[in-house]
């Protein structure tokens, strides 16, 4: 048993490399040889993880992945325990379907990060692509738990169809953020893109950097939501996010919608004083 397992990508990739099983819970029981034998797919070609990565360590739930990983997809997918650190950018579906453990990405992630996540923590130092924490294609619900914190901006459909869970975007969020959410919370520190919360049933969008609520959301009041204070305080303490005290102490316009559905969703827009 090693203190940790390190995967080092040997060189640049010609295309997207799909990995499977690079997860703390899986590695906790695998020898170095078994890790090297995990299947990967380069396009239509099936290969072994060891064909692309140098592997040191075995039987540890702590993993570090190093190299030019922007075209490596599926890192941390399905993880249920342990710690995975990606030392730079990563490809698509990072932490997808995770149910536990913690994935830290020191760079950007591609599309579908945290897709259908059920638990655990996905912490991305920089930005994310489309469908952050959203649903798998054709699925009725996306996140059912866990926390995703992205330091930079996110693409379209962030938090779409969430059932539970917390998605935090440090920068801007693209169009259709929190679309069709069943519940859950999306916090956007930057500008929230067009049509947030469209078709949502009960989800919350906390817009700290400006938002244009859809016409199908109705203004209710301007107040100090205690759960926003709690959430922002938690993010400051747990993730070390730099949260302006004016956001924590501030007042928020509450818009209720979406009117085409039960209408118990909300957009909370911070009011600069």
């Amino acid at each position: 048993m090693s203190e940790h397992v390190t995967l080092t990508l040997r060189g640049a990739l010609d295309g997207a490399l799909e990995v499977d099983g690079v997860a703390g819970d899986r590695f906790a029981t695998l020898s170095e040889g078994e890790i090297a034998a995990l299947p990967v797919w380069l396009g239509a070609r099936t290969a072994r993880l060891g064909d692309f990565f140098d592997i040191t360590g075995e039987r540890s739930s702590t993993i570090r992945v190093v190299g030019a990983l922007a075209r490596v997809d599926g890192l941390g997918a399905g993880m249920s325990a342990g710690e995975l650190t990606i030392d730079g950018d990563a490809g698509a579906r990072v932490g997808a379907r995770m149910t536990g453990g913690r994935v830290d990405v020191l760079g950007n992630v591609g599309d579908d990060a945290g897709m259908a996540m059920g638990g655990g923590v996905l912490n991305v130092r920089r930005g994310a692509g489309d469908r952050l924490g959203a649903a798998a294609p054709g699925a009725s619900k996306g996140m059912t738990g866990g926390e995703i914190v992205v330091g930079g901006s996110a693409g379209t459909d962030a938090g779409a169809r969430a059932r539970r869970g917390l998605v935090v975007v440090g920068g801007d969020a693209g169009r259709d953020a929190a679309r069709a959410t069943i519940a859950g919370t999306l916090v956007v520190f930057g500008r929230t893109g067009p049509d947030p919360g469209r078709a949502s049933k009960r989800g919350s969008v906390i817009a700290l950097g400006g938002v244009a609520p859809p016409a199908t959301y109705w203004y209710a009041c301007t107040y100090q939501p205690p759960h926003v204070r709690l959430t922002l305080t938690y993010l400051r303490r747990q993730y070390g996010l730099s949260v302006d005290g004016r956001l924590i102490d501030g007042r928020y316009r509450r818009y209720c919608g979406d009117s085409g559905t039960p209408g118990r969703g909300e957009i909370l827009e911070w009011v600069a004083s």
Binding site: E147, H227, T231, Y234
Partner: peptide, 13 residues
């Protein structure tokens, strides 16, 4: 009422 989960703990609004 609305439920929120923060840090794995459930709260009621």
């Amino acid at each position: 009422q609305i439920s929120k989960v923060v840090g794995g703990r459930r709260y009621w609004r």
